[in-house]
């Protein structure tokens, strides 16, 4: 049954020819795999199409000027007004305040992990820190409202409900921003640490050779050299804050408000979108369409932030790899 010696017969041209069935089989598999890959392309096309077609109908009802030049966002009560800036201000508000907390802490953590920590310490600490990114944001939202605002900020404000003389409202940007800061801490720390770890050794050694201390090497040599990576980390963190919904919807309030104060109740773009999603806005109403108009602005913002981060990361790789 089995040949005991290798093939003796010289092959004919037919032997080397493609087996049609096997070839077809292989092609079909390849086609199926390629079809899988188109899903992601179709998703993008669908997102863009849905956002912009609904937005286009929205702008038949609401003028461009009202959307971009009015400052009041009041879609539910007469007189209705769709000025996006109050929502944008809400988003910018939480971006600023979350960065105020997360940036110094995140950078310090990145410097510690990259320049100070023993490799074993880093191997343990880094995943633990990254675990913060795996906590569902609704959980952070719960903490922001109950623990941060209710148990800490309000008692801190005391009788007159004020911090530094300003009245704090129950739903406020500060509580949300503190939890957003925890949420983006791993993004800033981990990506900055990667960038710093990629700074060539000889740069550090040169600085040590000139008598610099560890802290000076870290802050004056490594950090500037890794700057584009750090900026990329910050852009990605901002994109996460801009896109985050649950924390701001639960803890920051639902009052469109043109303010950067951390103590007032505000509403972000995502907060508004969730509010509409909770109600049952009928298709074709201006409420339903405003959802997509705000979504489109949100999409463009996060896309720009992500692309900016990618460009910086690529530039960083070009320089050092």
């Amino acid at each position: 049954m089995m040949e005991t010696t290798p093939r003796r017969r010289a092959p004919t041209a037919d032997d080397l020819r493609r087996r049609p069935m096997r070839h077809l089989n292989e092609r079909l598999i390849e086609l199926a795999l390629a079809a899988c890959a188109t899903v992601s392309l179709v998703t993008t096309v669908a997102i863009v199409f849905v956002l912009f077609s609904e937005t286009a109908t929205f702008f038949q009802e609401v003028s461009f000027q009202d959307f971009f030049l009015e400052t009041e966002w009041q879609p539910l009560f007469n007189p209705v007004s769709f000025g996006i800036w109050e929502l944008v201000a809400g988003t910018v508000n939480v971006v600023i305040w979350s960065l105020v907390f997360a940036l110094p802490v995140g950078l310090a953590a990145a410097i510690y992990l990259s320049e100070y920590a023993h490799p074993n310490t880093r191997r343990i600490l880094k995943p633990v820190l990254e675990a913060l990114a795996g906590v569902p944001t609704v959980v952070y939202a719960y903490f922001a409202l109950t623990v941060v605002t209710q148990d800490i900020l309000i008692p801190l404000a005391g009788e007159d409900d004020a911090i530094f003389g300003d009245r704090i409202s129950f739903f406020n940007s500060l509580g949300a921003s503190l939890m957003l800061a925890v949420m983006i801490l791993p993004t800033i720390a981990s990506i900055s640490e990667d960038a710093m770890a990629n700074v060539p050794r000889d740069l550090r050694e040169a600085a040590y050779g000139l008598g610099a201390t560890r802290l000076e090497v870290a802050t004056r040599v490594v950090l500037p050299a890794a700057l584009s990576g750090v900026v990329a980390a910050v852009l990605l963190a901002i994109a996460r804050v801009v896109g985050e919904t649950m924390i701001v919807a639960i803890a920051a309030g639902s009052t469109p408000n043109l303010t950067l104060s951390p103590l007032e109740s505000i509403q972000t773009m995502t907060g508004y979108m969730l509010q509409v999603g909770l109600g049952d806005a009928a298709r074709g109403t201006v409420d339903y369409q405003s959802l997509f108009a705000v979504g489109a602005v949100l999409f463009v913002m996060t896309l720009a932030l992500n692309i900016g981060a990618q460009v910086l990361v690529n530039r960083f790789r070009e320089v050092y790899e």
């Binding site: 010289a10 092959p11 004919t12 041209a13 032997d15 080397l16 020819r17 493609r18 096997r22 070839h23």
Partner: peptide, 17 residues
């Protein structure tokens, strides 16, 4: 050429080769 057959002929399958 392999046994006189061109291995790079159009109809030849690299897998068979």
């Amino acid at each position: 050429l392999y046994h006189g057959l061109d291995l790079y002929a159009k109809e030849v399958d690299a897998v068979e080769v």
